[in-house]
Amino acid sequence: MTDTNFLKVPTMAEMVEQGKHPEVLFWVGCAGSYDDRYKRVITAFVKILNEVNVNFAVLGPEESCTGDPARRAGNEFLFQMQAMQNIEVLNAYEIKKIVTACPHCFNTIKNEYPALGGNYDVVHHSEFLQGLIDEGKLSVDGGEAFKGKKITFHDSCYLGRANDIYQAPRTVIEALDADLVEMKRCKKNGLCCGAGGAQMFKEPEQGNKDINIERTEEAISTGAEVVAAGCPFCMTMISDGIKNKEKEKDVKVMDLAELVAESKGL
């Protein structure tokens, strides 16, 4: 076992070659694959998976956009093309359980793939992390990194209102012994970062303010040192907002996986 000193990121193809089957497939998503900032989130999550010896795999080069932005932009053809090809791959590998850090991928695979023949048990990484903490597999106590620090959580629309997941990310933050402070608009009243519905990929319409600025101002006003996010698009939008407000030194934007990894010194 010479490779034990290196991070394991097995692909499904490699797993099959070795006659193995993973417990859970980690769906990385496009942001995790290409966005330099968000790759650090994926890295943190992979480190956690390694740390607690989760039997996981990724699709690697066989993964493809879920089609979410195409569908929200109105292009149902492209969405279904993507969805059917992904489902073909997932079903061929007999995937049962999927974890993803992206709420858009999560919503699409969980709620929209079944109509096209893709039925999986899909969890968001906030739920997955909560599960590991609840089962005692992942202990974050003793980690001093965030003890007593003010952290606010920005609800992603596709995790919160779209799928009614509000508690899991908060449980993870509370497990860090951090001081969770809520924004005025939180949980079911949470304000969008401005990126959903394919807005991420175009300039906003004429208005008097950008949505991410409105949300960032609210986050800053809580006095939190960290704005925690659970979505790659929210992360980009809030980070841009923080830059715009020249607050990079005072306020960090971090994903839940990064918070856990850092508190464990991973």
């Binding site: 290196f6 991070l7 992942l138």
Partner: peptide
């Protein structure tokens, strides 16, 4: 990532 060495946490 596969070329990164694993840093196991000392608490766990």
């Amino acid at each position: 990532l596969r070329t990164q060495e694993v840093k196991k946490s000392d608490t766990d």
